[in-house]
Design a protein around this nucleic acid. Sequence first.
DNA 1: CTAGGACTTGAACATTGGTTGAGGTCAAGC
DNA 2: GCTTGACCTCAACCAATGTTCAAGTCCTAG
Lengths: 128, 128
Amino acid sequence: MSATTAEGHTLTIGEVAAATGVAASAIRFYERQGLLTSHRTSGNQRRYDEFAPCMVRICRVAQRVGLTVQEVVALFDAMPEQPTADDWQGLTDALVAEAERRIADLRRTLDDLTSDGPLCALPGVDDV
Amino acid sequence: MSATTAEGHTLTIGEVAAATGVAASAIRFYERQGLLTSHRTSGNQRRYDEFAPCMVRICRVAQRVGLTVQEVVALFDAMPEQPTADDWQGLTDALVAEAERRIADLRRTLDDLTSDGPLCALPGVDDV
DNA sequence: CTAGGACTTGAACATTGGTTGAGGTCAAGC
DNA sequence: GCTTGACCTCAACCAATGTTCAAGTCCTAG
């Protein structure tokens, strides 16, 4: 019924999908983009390691922050092959910092919008 | 040299572009989307009213907030034909509120990311 | 009145981030 | 060892948001 039972610490694409709430098609897409790597069974099916769901989750958050998938790939590429807990923490920190930066930017724009007086109000009216 | 001199309170597409820093092609796009309306000269050139640059600016901010152009169109459609200063203010307020909501959402996600302990750290390792 | 920059349309192209479907293969529970 | 759901590839498509180009027209300064 299911090619889904994990062995050791490898995950099928369906398992990663279930673990992350992301469609399998999207996961294949991420892999094509270089975000994930997998090895293949003799029958050519993908098997992911335990990091995969985590990387997918980070990617989704990063996308919400406004990063493109390619930018996330670049982040991961900057990580060592065997990332330590500190490496993951650094990644998270970088993401948070980026989010804070973008939020601050947006807030500045919004403040301008509200404080510049009308900004977008009637332009020189009174003569209607 | 220039078809750019405004008469009364109408603006050429080039003037709107200059006033907003948005490309004329984008302004035509916004008009196709229903964000802007224009009347035409006898020679079929667009002439915008004084509100146009303001609407374009609002649209850009709204897009930064995460609204689609169609959502901005809906916002404008909800406005009366002859918007008062209060109407504009209400629009701005709605936009700011939406931005605040999205920022709060994002911050919640980020807080989860940092507070859930590892979340994305080594999943059950120690045996490498 | 004319030169030439600004404008017009329509179609094609680009990018990001995927989804969908056809046609076929794998693998595991019974 | 077969059945059947999960998986595979490849190509086409989607949608939002524009940009670019060609070919032609407008309009205003001078």
